[in-house]
Amino acid sequence: MTLQRIYLLLLLLLLALLLPSYGQDRMYQRFLRQHVDPEGAGGSDGYCNLMMQRRKMTSHQCKRVNTFIHENIWNIRSICSTVNIQCKNGRMNCHEGVVKVTDCKETGSSRIPNCRYRAMTSTRRIVIACEGDPAVPVHFDK
């Protein structure tokens, strides 16, 4: 086998190893953008209206429901180390924990770009999907 072919095979192997982590990283970054606000107190309709717009969830349509988690990312990531449970889609990569959240629900009468939301803040059980090694949250399940 020529040296050029060996380099090509090594490059393909490296790409095969990196591509899944790139997709996982994108999903992790999206999870952070859509669901994590450790500094926010939440609680008001104005908070939801502002955050949904800032986090780009009202650009093409009004996202009907979204949950912001008010915990630091290390607390959220620690949920990934709890026992696996079944996700809504049937996969077994979900985990549950209790955190402070603000649930934002679209009022039903708003139109883009002026989406309007109702806020409800609580401490409750959430379920997130995690992937990777180390496992990181990539999807808010419920």
Rank of each mutant, 00 (worst) to 15 (best):
H70V: 05
K88P: 02
Q24K: 10
T102I: 11
N114Q: 13
N89C: 08
I128W: 04
M51A: 15
N72R: 11
V65F: 08
L10S: 12
N66P: 05
V138Q: 07
A41D: 01
G90F: 07
I85A: 00
S81F: 12
R124K: 13
Q4V: 11
T102V: 06
I126F: 01
C87S: 00
R111I: 00
L15T: 15
V36Y: 11
D37W: 07
G132Q: 04
G46K: 01
I126M: 02
Q24Y: 07
M92T: 13
R26I: 08
V36S: 07
P38G: 06
F140D: 02
N49V: 15
S110E: 04
K63V: 13
A135P: 14
I79F: 00
D133Y: 13
C130L: 10
S81P: 06
Y22W: 12
S21L: 14
D37C: 06
T123K: 11
A135L: 11
E106L: 08
R33W: 09
M1G: 02
G132W: 06
S81H: 13
M57W: 14
L18R: 10
V98W: 09
I79Y: 00
C87H: 01
M92V: 11
I128G: 02
L50F: 09
E96F: 07
A41S: 00
P137K: 03
T123R: 15
K100F: 08
A41N: 03
Q29N: 14
M51E: 14
P113R: 03
L19G: 01
Q61Y: 14
R26S: 06
G40K: 02
L9I: 10
V136F: 10
C130H: 03
I128P: 05
G43H: 03
Y47K: 05
I112Q: 15
C130N: 04
S122C: 05
Q29I: 09
A135Y: 07
V36N: 10
P134G: 09
C104I: 02
